[in-house]
Simulated scan of single mutants.
Amino acid sequence: MLRTSPSSVSAAAAGMANSDRVVLALGGAGTVGSGVVKALLDKGFKVAVISRDSSRLEKLRAFVSPNTKDNLTTIVGNVGSEEGAEQAKQALLKAVGKVTDVVSSLGFSWWQGGPPHTQTLKDLHWVIETLLFSTFVSWKAFFPLVRDDSNCTYTFITGGAGEKLLMPGTGFLTVGAASTLAFCQVLRDEYPEVACKLNQVKINTGVATPERMAPGYLNHLDLGEGVATLVERRNTSHSVFTLNCPADLKTILLERNL
Rank of each mutant, 00 (worst) to 15 (best):
M1F: 10
S10I: 15
A12W: 05
A13H: 12
A14R: 12
M16K: 15
S19K: 13
L24P: 00
L24F: 01
A25L: 02
A25C: 09
L26V: 01
L26D: 00
A29S: 14
G30Q: 10
G30R: 12
V36H: 04
A39C: 08
G44F: 03
F45H: 08
V47R: 04
S54V: 10
E58T: 14
F63S: 12
F63T: 15
V64H: 02
T68A: 08
K69H: 09
T73R: 11
T74Q: 06
T74F: 00
I75Q: 05
G77E: 06
E82Q: 09
E83A: 14
E83H: 08
G84D: 01
A85M: 03
A85K: 03
K89R: 15
Q90F: 10
L93F: 10
G97A: 10
G97Y: 09
K98M: 09
D101G: 05
V102R: 00
V103W: 03
G107L: 05
S109C: 14
W110S: 14
W111Q: 13
Q112H: 04
G114Q: 00
P116G: 10
L121D: 14
L124N: 13
W126I: 15
E129T: 15
V137Y: 01
W139N: 09
A141G: 00
F142V: 04
F143S: 07
V146F: 03
D148P: 04
D149N: 13
D149H: 06
Y154G: 02
F156E: 02
F156K: 06
T158K: 04
G160N: 03
L165A: 08
L165Y: 08
P168A: 06
T170V: 09
T174P: 09
A177H: 07
S179F: 05
F183C: 05
C184H: 07
R188H: 13
P192E: 05
K197Y: 06
K197R: 14
K197D: 09
N199A: 06
Q200G: 09
I203L: 01
A208W: 12
E211R: 13
G216L: 03
N219T: 13
H220N: 14
D222V: 10
L223A: 09
G226K: 05
V227W: 01
E232P: 05
R233E: 05
N235T: 08
V240K: 02
V240F: 01
F241P: 05
T242V: 13
L243H: 01
P246A: 13
D248Y: 04
D248L: 08
K250L: 11
K250T: 09
R256F: 07
L258E: 12
